[in-house]
Computed example of a mutant assay.
Amino acid sequence: MIRFGIIGTNWITESFLQAAREVDGFALTAVYSRTEERAREFADKHGAAHAYTDVEEMASGGRIDAVYIASPNSFHAAHALACMKHGVHVLCEKPIASNAAELRRMIEAARERGVVLMEAMKSTLLPNFGAVRDHLPELGKVRRYVAGYCQYSSRYDAYKQGTVLNAFNPIFSNGALMDLGVYCIYPLVVLFGKPERIRANAILLDSGVDGEGSLLLGYPDMDAVIHYSKIADSSLPSEIQGERGTMTIAKISQMESVRIRYRDGSVADLTREQAANTMVYEINEFIRLIRRGDAESSVNSHAHSLWTMEVADEARRQIGLVYPADAAQS
Rank of each mutant, 00 (worst) to 15 (best):
G61N: 13
V31H: 04
E119L: 05
N201L: 11
I64Y: 07
D179F: 15
A312L: 07
T13P: 07
K160H: 12
G162C: 02
I185P: 00
S71A: 15
V189D: 03
G61L: 10
G211S: 06
M106L: 10
S15A: 14
A97K: 04
L139S: 01
S71D: 11
R111G: 04
S298I: 12
R38N: 13
N10K: 14
M84R: 03
S173N: 06
M118R: 08
I96L: 15
C150T: 08
L289M: 05
R104N: 08
R40S: 09
E37D: 11
D157H: 11
D44Q: 09
H86S: 09
I107K: 03
Y228R: 02
N174R: 15
I249D: 01
Y152N: 10
T35L: 12
N166H: 13
S235P: 13
N128F: 08
E108W: 08
D210M: 12
S153K: 14
G162H: 12
M106N: 06
D210F: 04
P127A: 02
K251T: 14
E14H: 12
L205E: 01
N169Q: 10
D179G: 15
K85N: 14
N73P: 15
R144G: 00
R113T: 09
I6P: 03
E273D: 09
E196I: 13
S238T: 00
P195M: 06
P170M: 10
R34L: 14
C184V: 02
A66S: 06
I107Q: 08
P220K: 05
N277C: 11
D54R: 10
Y32M: 11
E102I: 03
A27P: 04
M1C: 13
D157V: 10
R155V: 12
G175H: 04
A66N: 08
L216N: 15
R113Q: 11
R111A: 05
Y281D: 04
Y183E: 10
G175S: 04
R21A: 13
L236K: 15
R34P: 10
R40G: 12
